[in-house]
């Protein structure tokens, strides 16, 4: 068992990181922590993919023409992850901007408090229009 865990160390670490991020999304009320949790999930998936592309004794895929394919790692996951990282960054920036707007409106980062305040705001709005 321990042998297998050591053998698949990257996959196991990716699973653990993913679970940490996932449970944070559920349980932590703070929005900034939720965003960090989401980033943890992102990086866990990237780590998993990059580990899939590794082959024993392979070198980085800088290939002079006519070289043997056996001596290099798999470039496909690298390309996927590379673009994924940049997209993850832009979504994170978007989440942070939304968080800032929420904070300006409700003066709180705590999701529970925000939900309560917004419910009261809705009732108030209904009353005004009625």
């Amino acid at each position: 068992m321990l042998e297998a865990l050591l053998e698949q160390r990257y996959y196991v670490a990716a699973v653990v990181l993913f679970s940490i991020g996932f449970v944070t999304l559920f349980l932590h009320p703070n929005l900034i922590k939720k965003i960090i949790g989401l980033n943890l999930m992102d990086t866990a998936v990237f780590l998993f993919l990059a580990a899939m592309g590794y082959v024993d004794g392979g070198k980085a895929p800088i290939v002079p023409p006519g070289a043997e394919a056996e001596t290099y790692v798999n470039p496909v996951p690298g390309g996927l992850v590379l673009t994924g990282i940049v997209v993850a960054v832009s979504t994170t920036a978007l989440f942070l901007a939304l968080t800032h707007r929420l904070y300006r409106r409700y003066h709180s980062l705590n999701l529970d408090v925000i939900l309560m305040l917004s419910r009261e705001g809705e009732e108030d709005g209904n009353h005004k229009t009625a």
Partner: peptide, 8 residues
């Protein structure tokens, strides 16, 4: 309610 002038 907080933030608002009138409540239900």
């Amino acid at each position: 309610a907080p933030h608002h002038e009138a409540a239900k």
